[in-house]
């Protein structure tokens, strides 16, 4: 089992200083989750749902208040050292690198910290630099890197210890579309190599594309764990119809909502029968391009967690 989390709870006391006196806040509330070896697992949820808290506990930099968490069979509290040898951590943004060092120096430094010998460290650093397309800039200072390059280097850093489990905390924040695409391809490769991957993300498309299963969490509790598609089917959600038309369908029975943009409409219906009715109507009206689609992960997310607007 890659990750096994049982009834995990973590609460914080708000405030600053040696002994914060603020109110207690529960970040994880009896969370239970199992991720088999070799799975790419997505962790979805609004800000403050407890995603990062879970990642921090799994990476041994935070202790749980109660409950247990195991990584590859090792307890994150009792066997923290064994866990640390086997995990890689990647978080989004530009932090986690020494800007006054070159890319290669960064990697060799971390290689030593992950107990690689000098020769192994050299070899692994070159290999990862090549894999992430940084060979040409390997000896330039990180501060001269673009944001995307820093993120790639951060990724290489996370892979330096040849981890069996990789924790990605919001890895694609601020990535441009090309970089994000490359990132997804890389996740695929890492899966092929048999690594277990846990990704927290806000990006539903990303989760849908790369994850074998996703877990929706909110307020520190699991709402559902399923494959992205299974999640969509499991939920008694509306069926969508997409069509290239400007025809007005709002008057049809069973139509819940219509989003239209540039001659393209997405029609939310309350079930298969209504969807069929909408499709028939559109075909009768000479619309050529029309199809029924299951709800996307985003629809499920919004349905289960609720649209909170700007709330956090």
């Amino acid at each position: 089992m890659g990750v096994r989390v049982i009834d995990l709870t973590r609460s914080f006391r708000k405030g600053k200083g040696w002994r914060p006196k603020g109110p207690e806040v529960t970040a994880l509330d009896g969370l239970t989750l199992e991720i088999p070896d070799g799975e790419v697992h997505g962790l979805l949820g609004p800000n403050g749902a407890g995603k990062t808290t879970l990642c921090k506990i799994l990476s041994t930099i935070l202790l749980p208040s109660s409950g247990t968490a195991e990584v590859l069979g090792y307890d994150v509290v009792a066997d923290a050292h064994e866990v640390r040898r086997r995990i890689g951590i990647v978080f989004g943004g530009e932090h986690g690198l020494y800007w006054k060092l070159s890319a290669r120096q960064n990697l060799r430094y971390w290689a030593a910290l992950y107990k690689l010998t000098d020769a192994e460290g050299d070899h692994r650093a070159s290999e990862l630099l090549a894999r992430l397309g940084l060979t040409a800039k390997a000896d330039d200072l990180v501060e001269t890197f673009s944001r995307g390059m820093k993120q790639r280097l951060h990724l290489a850093r996370g892979l330096i210890g040849d981890p069996k489990l990789i924790l990605f905390d919001e890895p694609t924040i601020g990535m441009d579309p090309v970089a994000a695409h490359d990132f997804r391809r890389l996740i695929g490769e890492l899966r092929e190599e048999g690594r277990t991957i846990l990704i927290t993300t806000h990006d539903m498309d990303e989760a849908e594309e790369v994850c074998d299963r996703v877990t929706l969490i909110d307020k520190g509790r699991v709402i559902a764990t399923e494959s992205p598609r299974g999640l969509a089917q499991m939920s008694s959600l509306h069926r969508w119809v997409e069509a290239e038309t400007t025809a007005d369908v709002t008057h049809l029975p069973g139509v819940v909502a219509v989003e239209s943009r540039a001659g393209f409409v997405r029609i939310k219906t309350d079930g298969d029968a209504s969807a069929r009715r909408v499709i028939d109507f559109l075909l009768d009206n000479g619309v050529r391009s029309v199809r029924a689609v299951p709800p996307t992960l985003e629809d499920v997310y919004l349905d289960l967690i609720g649209a909170r607007g700007m709330e956090v």
Partner: peptide, 18 residues
């Protein structure tokens, strides 16, 4: 500041040595 403290703690080496 450079965000490496967490990574340093999560690495399997003795922190004092680093």
């Amino acid at each position: 500041r450079s965000g490496t403290l967490s990574l340093m703690v999560a690495a399997p080496s003795t922190h004092l040595t680093i």
